[in-house]
Design a protein around this nucleic acid. Structure first.
Lengths: 244, 244
DNA sequence: GAGCGTTGTTTCATTGAAGATATAACGGTC
DNA sequence: GACCGTTATATCTTCAATGAAACAACGCTC
């Protein structure tokens, strides 16, 4: 079943992606709908929009009807008049588009940011919050019910770094997960720095901070830092138990 | 174009959703593929899996071929033998499924968590990092290029709260955005608490913390707290400039 | 060697989504 | 009132995805 090709490059690029959606009344508004509405806004007419997008008028018209049945009035068409008429967006539509764009931005944040994954075992639990034992120590994470063996993923943009002197007392902050470590790698990007922190596990914990923060904290290889992250921001997923 | 229905309920539920995807070599692996592979794993045969899922064998077989061409060997089929044969997953497939599940979990975190949105204007910029002037004051956020008028969205699970006494000095932490405020609302959930903090803007900043943190910090209405969040975790999206 | 249930492979049928086309209605301008 | 470009609507065609069905190949058990 496996053709020979595909085997040759086991490290092929596998990229995360997504399709953002807004659901209402059984109808799903997706990226294609968003560009349709944006094009209508730019061209001022449904006809011009379908031409530019290479879509058929009839189908597009149907689609807008379906969307309006679920999301409420989205366009204000006018026929006749100078220029023959046209269609404009309602205020609600602009709000909808803005919301969709925010959603898409959050999702693309997820795909763009590095994350570190630790394997662990649930040792304690309070509802959806579990304490997980990992190679780096115990940490809290949101965990699906009835799972023991888990992978914990920590997004780099949720990890904040502190100078050792200014490390917060655990009682005074809502960031319950704190790990002292030493900076292992510093990867400077355009305006942001990705920092790998050795916190005792095999895999370093990577944190994404601004260049300003990196400078103020003196983040160079070998520096001592404290890394903290919230348990409500870290999530665990079930892990396959070793077979035998 | 707008049928009368739809107008009647302007506050209809609009729910965010997503389709998680993994892309390789032009082929996209989606949730349907994941359940297919999981079902093969559970039933031990492609035939049984297609029966359970109500899909045609031929189509399913084609799909697996296409996936393997892009993602590498995913299944190990055997034909003949006792029971007629069967197909099992490769180790790579389990890794792939685990990765997909982590991705899906992160996305569902985005849709599940509350967020607060502030409108603002970019007043300074360093690459993708911008300083945005909002009703709550200045804050840093990742911002798309060439945008001035923005909406800034702050996920509740990225906001950490500190007791006023233990508020970190801005030089000692990589959480550059800090706002002192007073607790306005406290919404206790199963094992987590959603806290609305008045930081001077019209809309309160909502933070999601564990019940343990809420208790230790003494989070009740009227309490003084400091809310902080990282600029690499907050994102801005373009905002429609007022028309005229 | 017959039987069995699986994997492979091909061919044909079905179905649903989208495009293509035609026509009516509208309301300004001229 | 003729003209124009648009919206509205219906019908037909096209195409791609999927299912259905048939058949060969395989290898173990008996």
């Amino acid at each position: 079943m496996a053709p020979e090709r595909g085997t040759e490059d086991p490290s092929a690029e596998i990229d995360p992606a997504f399709e953002a959606e807004l659901h209402a009344d059984g109808v799903t508004f997706d990226g294609e709908d968003a560009t349709l509405l944006r094009t209508i806004d730019e061209t001022g007419s449904l006809n011009a929009a379908t031409d530019r997008l290479g879509r058929s008028y009839s189908r597009t018209h149907e689609r807008i009807d379906a969307l309006e049945a679920a999301f409420g009035p989205l366009v204000e068409p006018e026929r006749g008049g100078s220029g023959g008429g046209g269609t404009e967006l309602t205020a609600r539509t602009r709000t909808l588009l803005a919301r969709f764009e925010r959603l898409r931005t959050e999702f693309s944040g997820v795909t763009a940011v590095e994350e570190t994954v630790y394997e662990g075992v649930v040792v304690d639990r309070d509802g959806e919050i579990a304490t997980v034992q990992t190679a780096a120590g115990e940490l809290g994470a949101i965990t699906p019910p009835e799972t023991e063996a888990v992978q914990v993923t920590i997004r780099a943009d949720t990890v904040t770094l502190h100078s050792q002197a200014e490390a917060p007392t655990s009682a005074g902050t809502s960031a319950r997960n704190q790990f002292a470590g030493t900076v292992e790698t510093v990867d400077e990007r355009e305006s942001v720095v990705s920092v790998g922190v050795d916190i005792g596990a095999e895999q370093p914990l990577t944190a994404l901070v601004t260049q300003g923060s990196a400078a103020e904290l003196g983040l160079t290889a070998g520096a001592s830092v404290v890394a903290s992250f919230k348990t409500t921001a870290t999530r665990a997923t079930p892990r396959q138990q070793p077979e035998a």
